[in-house]
Simulated scan of single mutants.
Amino acid sequence: MPNPAPVLRVALIGAGGIAHAHARALAELAERARLVAVAETDPARAAAFSQRFAVPRTYTDAASLFAGEELDLVHVCTPPQTHVPLAVMAMRAGVPALVEKPTALSLAEMDQLAAVHAETGTAVLTVFQHRYGPAAVRLRRLARSGALGRPLAAVCETLWYRSDDYFDTPWRGRWEFEGGGPTMGHGIHQFDLLLSVLGPWSQVSAIAGRLARPTDTEDVSMAVARFDNGAMATVVNSVVSPRETSRLRFDFEHATVEVEHLYGYREKHWRFTPAPGHEPLADLWKADGGADVESGHLLQIQAVLDAFGSGAEPGVSLDDARRTMEFAAATYASAFRGRPVTAGELTGDDPFTSSMHGGAVPWAPMKKATA
């Protein structure tokens, strides 16, 4: 009888709101992974977190965590500007890191991660959990099989609402801390899923504006994209939309496939419409259905553990995440330069490789009120 797979030792860096989603997922995977430690700079938050999730050890910083623990995986659940330094620290400690989005604040930082990965051989993965919902996996499989015909047009909308008070947190809405506005921090989940279905993009034309929120970044962006396979898509990212929704629509030659949800989808959120003469495809969609599980962190973490167990490359890899980050950078570059941007154009010393704003934001920084 084969020996059972060892239970992996996992730690979290950061104990804020998103860390709770990671901890809940790990609790459901307790037979495969055990949360052994958390690193958090706020002692009260660390104590509350460790008590809630029965974490045996807490550390005040990541360096102490890596010095004190033998780990198989670390989850980086901290504000965006810390992601790259912490991921580099993990790689140099020989610990694979699963990093919340965005992986980095710029393409240059993504390339820095790639260089350290090449040096150490240790993986850095990005949390793009919506790729792992059963319906999305099914859609990619059917699309790649050719059953749906060629992809022709798509719509990707992240229409969310964040009040002015949301941006009272000092790092929110600031280029130097978040890398960008809803393009980087909110809509990136939906257009990452779009890209995972449609494949490589070739050109982006975009506009962006700060219309209502007290931010340095945009609060709305809109892009039109062309893909290598000829498909075209619109991508809208907003934090000024009172009726919130996350919507994706794919029009293939033989069917339309749609999903509308907010922060996570299930089977009921999907709709499949075959083109006239292709009605049997509806039965294929239903017959190929998976478990009705929400597209949350659990599914991606489970997929990462599966990959570790089988020796496969876990997702989402740095190469994959960079393609999504490049789409975000191209959106900003096109919006601020007022012209289309092609894939691969943003390289070298181009200002939009070192920051998403490229030093070309057309509005003045927002000044905070002082007491």
Rank of each mutant, 00 (worst) to 15 (best):
residue 38 V to D: 09
residue 160 W to A: 10
residue 219 D to A: 02
residue 171 W to K: 03
residue 283 D to I: 06
residue 60 T to Q: 14
residue 81 Q to I: 06
residue 121 G to P: 04
residue 81 Q to R: 11
residue 24 R to W: 12
residue 317 S to A: 15
residue 258 E to W: 13
residue 274 P to S: 08
residue 299 L to M: 10
residue 189 H to Y: 13
residue 218 E to W: 08
residue 3 N to F: 04
residue 258 E to A: 15
residue 176 E to W: 04
residue 350 D to E: 09
residue 311 G to A: 00
residue 35 L to W: 09
residue 151 P to K: 14
residue 328 A to I: 06
residue 117 H to M: 05
residue 323 R to A: 15
residue 310 S to C: 13
residue 371 A to I: 10
residue 304 V to P: 11
residue 242 P to N: 00
residue 50 S to I: 03
residue 68 G to K: 04
residue 141 R to N: 12
residue 131 R to K: 13
residue 301 I to D: 08
residue 225 A to C: 12
residue 340 P to D: 03
residue 168 D to V: 02
residue 354 S to H: 06
residue 98 L to C: 04
residue 170 P to W: 14
residue 80 P to W: 06
residue 144 R to D: 15
residue 107 L to W: 05
residue 164 D to T: 03
residue 115 A to F: 01
residue 2 P to W: 00
residue 200 P to T: 08
residue 63 A to N: 04
residue 361 V to Y: 02
residue 12 L to N: 11
residue 182 P to V: 06
residue 192 D to T: 03
residue 102 P to F: 01
residue 163 S to M: 00
residue 14 G to S: 09
residue 363 W to K: 03
residue 39 A to W: 00
residue 356 M to T: 04
residue 308 F to E: 07
residue 271 R to N: 11
residue 222 M to P: 01
residue 164 D to K: 08
residue 293 V to G: 01
residue 197 V to Y: 06
residue 240 V to S: 02
residue 68 G to V: 06
residue 28 E to Y: 05
residue 73 L to Y: 07
residue 320 D to T: 03
residue 326 E to F: 08
residue 182 P to Y: 05
residue 263 Y to G: 04
residue 73 L to K: 04
residue 192 D to K: 00
residue 327 F to N: 02
residue 1 M to D: 11
residue 338 G to K: 10
residue 324 T to A: 09
residue 330 A to C: 10
residue 17 G to C: 03
residue 5 A to E: 11
residue 342 T to N: 08
residue 105 L to R: 07
residue 14 G to C: 08
residue 332 Y to P: 00
